[in-house]
């Protein structure tokens, strides 16, 4: 079987999905897990784009519309995940400005 460009891109997309999946489970850090989900999403988008070339010379607009919408969703969910990560980090460590205030109070 000849390796046509669309098949190559499709397989690459699926591989990216699997790599992201592995990283999601193995990465010890939350930021790593968020990036892993992003890589999975990129893999799926690449796979969907190759579907547009599936049959004949006409390019199917539906997968392209799906990818555009999917990118918007992916960006929004990444933003929510990053905001949540900031909240977790802020809750985990004691606020940095507190000891400083104590020092100021002592000085005053």
């Amino acid at each position: 079987m000849a390796l046509s460009p669309s098949l190559l891109y499709g397989l690459t997309g699926l591989m990216l999905f699997v790599i992201g999946l592995a990283a999601l489970f193995t990465s010890p850090q939350l930021l790593g897990k968020i990036l892993a989900v992003n890589i999975m999403a990129s893999g799926i988008f690449l796979f969907l784009i190759t579907l547009a070339h599936g049959s004949g010379t006409l390019i199917d607009p539906v997968p392209q519309a799906m990818v555009l919408t999917g990118i918007v969703v992916s960006v929004s969910s990444t933003a929510v995940a990053l905001a949540l990560l900031c909240r977790i980090e802020a809750a985990a460590r004691p606020p940095a400005h507190l000891p400083k205030k104590k020092d100021e109070a002592r000085q005053g």
Binding site: F17, L24, I34, G54, P63
Partner: peptide, 27 residues
């Protein structure tokens, strides 16, 4: 907060798997 983070990651994993399935259905 920690529970919500885990919920978000599981949910994203679930919906991305769903989206890949949607791609296969369309194919």
């Amino acid at each position: 907060l920690v529970a919500a983070m885990r919920y978000l990651l599981v949910s994203l994993l679930g919906s991305l798997t769903f989206l890949l399935g949607v791609g296969f259905f369309y194919k």
